[in-house]
Design a protein around this nucleic acid. Structure first.
Lengths: 201, 201
DNA sequence: TCAAAACGTTAACAAAAGATAAGGAATTGG
DNA sequence: CCAATTCCTTATCTTTTGTTAACGTTTTGA
């Protein structure tokens, strides 16, 4: 993907939170890099500090933990979504999870160092700060809703809701990743799917 | 509780994220109110917009949803923790949960309107913005870890970990609230407790 | 102070989910 | 292009969890 198109996608995403004039964008774009992430390559690996935050401008990634030698998928990021191991990035501690490309992807990256510099930049500081707040709030709300779903809904209800809210991307993801995402086993998800099929049939 | 003591607690909390000089604090404190919240009184009710964000300076509160006529406890806030229905507060939409005082409490409140004014205040704007970002990031990390625990751990593991990390406050909270918090039934938690007792005995 | 309500535990049974294995379809990667 | 792997489903069996109800204790509130 063309670097300029990628950067413009980042600008559009940024501006959905905080508007920028051309001068500000010019300054901000200096801090960004556009990097390809080939399928199966890692954006983050457990044990290493996640040193950047990025926007998926093409493709998709999968977040997963490894427990007892098993991969457990926790989340996904698709086009026009941010990606990072937030805790690792924010606290400068080793990540506890992996982030891996599900397909050939392109990421617009902002390294920790560059973010700090952008925040100290006269012209940008305030807007970077606000962007950071709004993005954090956005994902805070996402997580809040996810926790609520774990507490108030059965696995079957969670899956039904996912079918309603999740886009077509859902159909490109292996079922066992979705099962992990819902907090159940693949076998259990398969049973739920059969039950739902019978009802709607 | 004395108003000044309460306000100083808020200052201390704020400064654990962003330092303030006396002049800035003087400005900020104008936007705050100190309100008692008697046991069983509501800080937020489902269906109403949560119009403020607060810091618990004394006491504790419980977050809960009502589903099929049943109360399901999702979270708690204790002394020196923030409280709000974040989604409702941030998006100005009706809350989907209740927040109720577990004991006679005192809250230092910042209304949505006052927060906006503080953000537009020359002297404070930047620091408010940063405080907002850091608090959002802090709770983002909390939620991230909670979601991870739902996906990677069994209810028994979640409870064991809660025993390790949760403070003495744990022993003041009814078991069935904790069961909800863990995403299981009170009966199931009781069985887990017996199993753990046997092991450690 | 005292009756009512709330709590935690336990038991018995039902329902759901996990574990394991097998089989066929789809995908992958050389 | 084809062998190897991954994937989804299904079946069986085990374990865990949910449901309901009962009982004694503690707490609450009038």
């Amino acid at each position: 993907m063309d670097t300029l198109i990628a950067l413009n996608k980042f600008r559009k995403y940024f501006e959905s939170f905080v508007p920028l004039n051309d001068e500000e964008w010019q300054a901000l774009s200096q801090y960004l890099t556009v990097d390809p992430l080939k399928k199966k390559k890692f954006y983050v690996e457990a044990g290493k500090v996640c040193d950047q935050i990025g926007l998926v401008v093409k493709g998709s990634v999968r977040y997963y933990h490894v427990k007892d030698g098993e991969e457990i998928t926790g989340y996904f990021s698709f086009e026009d979504e941010m990606l990072s191991s937030y805790k690792s990035f924010l606290t400068r501690t080793p990540a506890v999870n992996y982030i891996q490309a599900l397909e050939d992807s392109v990421i617009v990256n902002l390294s920790h160092k560059n973010l700090q510099q952008a925040c100290m930049n006269e012209l940008l500081g305030f807007k970077m700060e606000r962007f950071g707040r709004l993005v954090a709030e956005h994902y805070l709300i996402c997580y809040e809703e996810r926790v609520t779903s774990f507490i108030t809904q059965s696995p079957e209800e969670r899956y039904s809701q996912l079918l309603e809210t999740g886009g077509e991307a859902l159909y490109r993801i292996p079922q066992h990743y979705i099962a992990n995402f819902l907090g159940i086993t693949p076998v259990s998800l398969s049973r739920i799917r059969r039950r739902i099929m019978k009802i709607s049939a």
